[in-house]
Design a protein around this nucleic acid. Structure first.
Lengths: 347, 347
DNA sequence: CTGAAAGCGCTTACAG
DNA sequence: CTGAAAGCGCTTACAG
């Protein structure tokens, strides 16, 4: 089965390759009638322009690379990618996904000309990312950062500070005096920002910082379980705020095992609004992250850069939402019946 | 910044473009000393062959397309993709991900020459998939199906029947006589296979099929909640097997609301071993699906096809594992402390 | 073992 | 508004 090429289309409609190419690329200065003829020929022959020939001859690749840290996969990647893809596919762009050793891979993708632009979820290793950003800039390849804003690179982040601050205010309304914060790994920007926002919110409400205890986990459920145990050995806080929902879940499991009731004996809150948050017992009070919107915004922004435009803001921050359920001691009328829309499917 | 090309490399080491190309592609019949010279020049100039030029001139694109059904994102996609990528990146292959309207997109990807091979998670719409498969075959593009085996296309699936059968045997050991099966959408192959295996396993143990009730959900948690309520109105089974964990979770929530205890008043089991399964109360008995291995196997198989080989089997079936916890009425010594390894991270 | 040359299928100044 | 021709950066018979 031989390939259909511009040549074939040109012959079929009695025009030149150049004209056919112009029609395909929607250039101005083509007679309407000509456009018609070309389009008919394209349909008739079932012609699809070869992507590599286009890219090689100076056109775009029509591909964006999405770089996410691998190693431990994160369920929210699904939601994020969905947002990215939604926008990309509408714009006729393809998504090249890379997680495994993406820093090395990114360079190859760039140098081999495989993508027009990049979306990069940079969480750690700032030095190595810097080098990558420099290379991208040198090559004139647009890129959008998701996670940690660096210098004046275009970035999209989530309002960690604001979310944690809102939760702190809520805790303050409950009147808690002794509070535990279960942090993520040292130096992790999300954990740091949440701690910062939490402290800020507490102090705004006149909270005595001496009542704040900090134990460190690694964002995993077991680490929350262990952190809670560690804290229990030195005393008993009135409330716990974990830097993510999974550690909050771990803390709840520890409390149950220690014979303590949530929220009667201790309030618990998390961050993320993970799938299970509303289904644990009691339903978890948390701060919701807009992962889907994060993906959408990242891709919309990249698209704008690709077409030579600029984003409205160099550093876009998406709002987070305090989601009050029952684990903080509030009344919660949720999931009864459970919410009807349920975006996740496991089968 | 001008692009470094084969021309530059050839000049730098005093050889022809053809020879440089041969070295890059690891062809035989090149003098060892020559290989050395070329490699040195490549390093010195920081040369990366342009992917499009290679593809256009008859080489491979070095890209595989992964097509997954979108609409509702599934957290297990993360795990599956991780497996795919692990193998792909080791083989120097890039992954083009597509979920949004992938059936249309697949054709474009194929005709535009954007991928050497395809991994397709085909769940429904058999007709449209057939047409795609025919096109792929006509073009000589290798592809691997993940999900529903069709004809003699290469496929990788999970042992739904065996897993459900093992669970049925386990239920039989508990001596349950009246059992509810919460199915997925009508015609969904996973749900059908699980029901088939469940019935098979029960009948092997002499279970009276009159004791089996079936209610249909849509794999979501709320649908499990509703299905359980529906069943409760007409009687009370001794045990429930849901076609996935999320519906099992919904059933548990319904039972709690109805004042029934799990497993004392009713046993519950699911399918998947989703993240939350071991953390709900009581920990959920379920059948584990090897999603990571599914991705790995799909990619390994595709790689083999790409290099002109054949898979060991046309239809590969990966084993599932009965994972007994407490919701069926068994003793469970789990998560105390919680399992230390925890592949998922939400932050 | 190596090179000169054709060709992959497009796009894009340059003319007209 | 349209066409002839050069060129993008490789690979691959074909010679030698």
């Amino acid at each position: 089965m031989k390939n259909v090429t511009v040549e074939d289309v040109a012959r079929n409609c009695g025009l030149s390759r150049a004209t056919v190419s112009r029609v395909i690329n929607g250039e101005a200065r083509v007679k309407p009638g000509t456009i018609e003829r070309v389009k008919r020929a394209i349909d008739e022959l079932g012609y699809h322009p070869n992507a590599h020939a286009r890219a090689l001859s100076g056109g775009r690749t029509g591909t964006v690379a999405v770089l996410l840290r691998g190693g431990a996969w994160r369920p929210y990647y699904s939601t994020l990618l969905e947002g990215v893809e939604e926008v990309a596919s509408r714009a006729g762009l393809h998504v090249l996904l890379r997680t495994h050793e993406y820093l090395e891979a990114a360079q190859a993708i760039l140098e081999e000309g495989r993508a027009d632009g990049f979306i990069i979820r940079n969480l750690d290793e700032p030095e190595r990312h810097r080098r990558l950003f420099d290379r991208l800039a040198a090559r004139g390849a647009p890129f959008v950062l998701v996670g940690d804003p660096v210098g004046d690179c275009q970035s999209i982040t989530i309002d960690n500070v604001g979310g944690a601050r809102a939760l702190a205010h809520h805790f303050a309304e409950h009147g808690f005096r002794r509070v535990l914060f279960i942090a993520g790994p040292e130096g992790h920007i999300d954990s740091n920002d949440r701690l910062y926002g939490f402290k800020l919110g507490l102090s705004e409400k006149g909270f005595d910082q001496a009542g704040l205890e900090l134990v460190r986990g690694d964002f995993s459920t077991p680490s929350g379980f262990n952190a809670m145990r560690e804290s229990l050995q030195s005393g008993r806080p009135e409330a716990v705020f974990a830097a993510n929902d999974r550690m909050a879940l771990g803390a709840m499991l520890q409390l149950r095992q220690a014979g303590l009731r949530v929220p009667e004996d201790m309030a618990v809150a998390g961050f993320d609004d993970a799938y299970f948050a509303e289904y644990v017992t009691p339903p978890l009070t948390t701060v919701r992250q807009p992962f889907h919107e994060l993906g959408v915004t990242a891709m919309v922004t990249l698209e704008r850069l690709l077409s030579g435009g600029q984003a409205n803001s160099r550093h876009i921050i998406l709002p987070t939402t305090l989601t009050v359920r029952a684990s903080c001691g509030c009344r919660y009328a949720g999931h009864n019946p459970p919410i009807p829309e349920d975006r996740f499917e496991t089968s």
